[in-house]
Simulated scan of single mutants.
Amino acid sequence: MEKHLIVLDLDGTLLTDTQTISEKTKQTIMKAKEAGHQVMIATGRPFRASQLYYNELMLTTPIVNFNGALVHHPKNKSFKLVHSPMDIGVVHDVVDSVDKFQYKNLIAEVMDNVFIHTEDQSMMNIFKMGDPDVTIGNLRGNLNEDPTSLLIHANEENVPSIRKHLEDVHAELIDHRRWGAPFHIVEIVKKGLNKAVGISLVAKELNIPRDRIIAFGDEDNDLEMIDYAGIGVAMANGIDQLKSIANEVTLSNNEDGIANVLIERLKLN
């Protein structure tokens, strides 16, 4: 069988609700690698929060982080790192403009450095994963570099109005996505970036055509990726919008949905 590129989102897709990779899914991915297929991760997480799973699967491919704002190869320094941060002036404008909305916190990330507007112990475990440098305090005073991403943590009922405001006022300069539960967060990156942009760079490097890309996802930050892939697969726990454009809907992240598709399509039994 011809070589395929298997692209895995993490949260709600590869990872179960306990933030682990099930044994069946892990062994199936290993079989796919042994059969000559390439496996990569494409996630909204920074690398420091995805490295654990990259290592667990013993990957040797580039990785897409921050929904396409960072593409790099942890094992091959000759692969050109692509980092596409937002202009810090744009971020300041966004921060100022959302002040009229009720939000809980603002978090900016510069690669693997974290800047948190207000200390919030309920979220510290997430942002301290991978032991980054964490700076707490007013973003205007502390953030002095172009950030890779900006996160707005809000109450669930306020997320739609914040996203509408971003679309109405800042659409020419930024793209935004919504995280799933338990934290209702709007993630902002530079305009034109998404997972599909990063995957296309990796596929070109690996010389794998688009029609031999199998991508798995569950949330709205996976829309472009699922649409781009030759075989776009939505998880049963995914959003309806993603399911409507996917080539296939598989079982949930807790039911080895990834493994079932790979076993059938790549004949891994």
Rank of each mutant, 00 (worst) to 15 (best):
K164T: 12
I116D: 06
I162P: 00
E205F: 14
L151G: 08
R140V: 00
H184P: 00
L173G: 02
E219T: 09
N142L: 05
D175E: 14
M129P: 00
V186Q: 01
G217M: 13
V114P: 09
D146C: 06
S149T: 11
K243E: 01
A215Y: 07
A196I: 03
G230Y: 04
E119R: 10
H184C: 01
K191N: 07
A236C: 07
V197D: 10
M235D: 07
G217Q: 13
H165W: 12
P209A: 15
I213Y: 03
K164R: 14
L206V: 01
E157G: 06
E187P: 02
V189R: 14
G232P: 03
T148Q: 00
Y103W: 08
R163V: 02
Y103R: 03
H170W: 11
I213R: 03
N105V: 02
M129W: 02
I136S: 00
D222E: 04
V197T: 11
I213K: 08
N138W: 02
H184I: 11
I188E: 09
V159W: 09
I188F: 11
D211H: 15
N138P: 03
G238W: 10
D120A: 12
G130K: 02
N207A: 15
V134D: 05
E156V: 04
I162A: 07
A171W: 06
D112P: 06
A108Y: 02
V169M: 14
T118D: 09
N237G: 10
E205V: 06
N155D: 15
V114I: 13
I174W: 11
R178S: 15
I162W: 01
L166Q: 07
E157N: 10
N158C: 11
A181L: 06
N155A: 09
L201H: 10
I214M: 11
P132R: 01
M129E: 13
F183T: 04
P132M: 07
I152N: 07
I226G: 05
I239W: 05
D131E: 09
N142D: 05
M235N: 10
H170F: 15
